[in-house]
Every structure is written in C-alpha cells, then in structure tokens.
Design a protein around this nucleic acid. Sequence first.
DNA 1: CTCCTTGTGAATATATATTAACAATCATTT
DNA 2: AAATGATTGTTAATATATATTCACAAGGAG
Lengths: 215, 215
Amino acid sequence: MDKQNRISPAVIRRLPKYYRYLGELNKVGINKTSSRELSEMTGFSASQIRQDLNNFGGFGQQGFGYDVANLRTEIAKILGLDKRYRIIIVGAGNIGQAIANYTGFYEADYEVVALFDKNPKLIGMSIRNAIIRDADDIEEFLEKEHIDIAVICTPKSVSQQVAEQLVECGIRAIWNFAPKDLKMPEEVYVENVHLNESLFSLTYYYNEMRKKKGE
Amino acid sequence: MDKQNRISPAVIRRLPKYYRYLGELNKVGINKTSSRELSEMTGFSASQIRQDLNNFGGFGQQGFGYDVANLRTEIAKILGLDKRYRIIIVGAGNIGQAIANYTGFYEADYEVVALFDKNPKLIGMSIRNAIIRDADDIEEFLEKEHIDIAVICTPKSVSQQVAEQLVECGIRAIWNFAPKDLKMPEEVYVENVHLNESLFSLTYYYNEMRKKKGE
DNA sequence: CTCCTTGTGAATATATATTAACAATCATTT
DNA sequence: AAATGATTGTTAATATATATTCACAAGGAG
C-alpha cells in the first residue's frame, strides 16, 4: 500500500488544470460536463482525464457525466485546497512583494502571515495585512507561530542557508524562487520556480522558430 | 534533417542548469571540470551530461575534461544567450513590475523596453529606464519597435485577447504569467509560468508528507 | 428501453533516463 | 619520447515513466 498507491507526478500536475477549467465552467453557470468536453477544453484526451480521475475514485455518473461543482470540490480535496495554509515569505524584494500581493492565492485558503527581510528600509512596512519583519527574528517567530509553507525569495547567495534555517525550525514545504537547487533532506518538499531557466528555454525555442522560418 | 535533429525538451530544460552551475564554478575561479564533477553538482548522471552535450557537438577534450568558461559560452550560444533580446511586459501590476525589476534578466542580454497597462495611475511611471505606457498604444508601439519577447502579466480575463493582439503585431514568443492556457497558432512559442498550479502541486505533496508522517 | 458516458483494464507507443562499454586522445609523468 | 591515467565522444541496450488507444461492461438519465 505504498508503491501501488503512488500517483505519477504528471497526474498531479494536471489536477490544478482540471480544477481551473472546472472553475471557469462553474463561473459561466455550467453545472454538468463530461470527459469529452473537458478534453476539448484542456487538450488532454478524454481517456486520460478519466484515467487520471480514476486514480482517486469515481466522481462521475456513468451514462451522465460529471457534476461540475462536485468534481471541482473533489479535486480541491485531493490537492488539499479545502484546508487553510499559513505562509511566510522570506525576502521581501520585488518577487517577494509580488507574491504577497498575488491574488491567485486567495482562490484557496492561503494566508500570508509575515514577510522577512534584512533591509531596514523594508522592515515595518506591511503588505495586505502582513508585516515585513526583521529576518533575524525568523526563528523566534516560527517557535510561536505554526507555518505550513515558506516561500524563498532571497538572493541565491543566501537561499541555501535560509532554507536550512527554516527546516531546522520545522518547515517541511518550500516554494523556492531563488535560482538555486536547494539541497534538502527528503522529508522536505521543494517546489522550484526558476524564472531564468524558464526564460532561457523560451529563448531557445524562439530562436529555433526563427531558424525554421529563415530556411 | 528535421526529426533527427530535434532535441528532446528534457535536454533543453537541463541546459540552463548546466549554464548556471558553470557560472558558479567560473565565479569561484575554477576553470576546468569534468562530467563526473558536474554530475556531483547537478545530480544528473555523468553519462547523461555527456550525452546531452553530445547532441550539440563536442565541447570537451578527451582525457582532460571541459574548460568551464568555454563550455559555458557554448551552452550560451546553444540557448541563444549570446544575442540581445528586446522585451515588453503587458500588465504592470505586481508580477509585471517584479519581472521588470528582476535582475536575473541581466545575466544575459535581455532588455525590458516598455511596459503597458490600462491603469492611468501607472501610466507614465518608469521602472529601470522602461516607461509604463498606455495599453491602447501597444499596436502603434510594435509597428515602430522590434520586439522579440512579450511577457503577459495581465489578469487572466484579458490574457487571450492580449496575446492575439500581440501575435497580430508579429510577436512570436510569449512568456505567460496569466493563469490561462493561451490558444495560439503553432508558429508562436508560449512558455507558461503558472504560479497557482505550482503552489497547488506543492500543497498536494506537502499533505502527502504529512499523511506519511502521521501514519 | 435506449442512449450515453463512466470506470476500468489491457495493450501499445513514445519519451526519457540509466547503464554499460570502449576506442580515441589528451595531459602528465617518467 | 614513451608510458600512464583520465575523460571524452559515441553507440547500444535496457529500464522506467508517461501517454495513447482501444474496448466494453455497468449503470444512470431520459
């Protein structure tokens, strides 16, 4: 009941997409859908969608389809979006502030509880009810407050060190925006958003297209 | 000479990582390395690294290894980082501004030429030499200026429409931060950064770990 | 009763990673 | 100048992960 239960990461990556498309259907007032319809919207095959969902149980009605709101709720439960998450952001520069202001958060129940920075000019400022605190107070803060997810938006030079400190204080989930691969014990899950790698890939494919067109 | 030459996307995604690690070696003053050493740093197998590089030619010296600076330059060429790119950012909200301020850009020769927004309060402001202009002037602007890459940081509700407008004006590379899958003709390359999907995946794995620990 | 779509399994295809092997060849040492 | 040791470039074989395709019984809606 361990290896058998393990769901392919590719499936997990698709769930948020299903969730998003179901949200769009919901918003337009459509409350019934089918794997075929979802296929047209998402570009994934109907069969794949059914198989993906089947990893977690049967959420549809045979011969009928899926109830949009219900399926959306079920996917939310699978992802854990039915719970509340308390977040801190370490590094309150451009990216850190942008994340704190990011409204996409609030679709689910994520709450940015605090930001941390070294820069005295930033300390004391507040962003959407969250105060920017002195980075030296992280440990003290984490002793008192329960935090689920830490977002690392520091310069890469200190990211590893910051991550280790956070883990020492009990953090087990890191959303890493620093352009560095954090070396972490395996009980810590790190989700990377490497913007420069993303941009470099884009650049490669942009040039490939230009070559193709030029020939 | 088409299907044979096509390089797997997985390889392309690894190149920026090699580039980054070589940069770090360079910075520390190390000018010679090997696939074995790179393997230890990156976590990819030495054999895989050699195979990846071999897709593009031989950059090392048999019996010796790789010259760090040279290999880095070669990877830069492959990705196209030896050229200059002119960028516009559409949507000058939190994310748009953060991207404009993002210094990771300037490792390579990317230049943010302008931002665009609808909000009169933002229009006229400037961020690092780039002025925020009226979104109504995008077409006019693109007629006069050559732009390589457009970054979409608008709300999702208008992202598709904005993208179509950009493509009409000749844009062929889009870096999309809006939580929406853009439907584009195939001569346009879209690189998505879907922050909420990233966060939702993180949430899933965070909960999986908690379950494992709880049992 | 009919039609439709799910849930499910199986078989196959494709993409990617892993492993092994080794000749070629360069730097270094002797 | 020759021997040594190291590491690339390269091919091949295999393993794994993921996607695709087909099929169809089961069961609910109408």
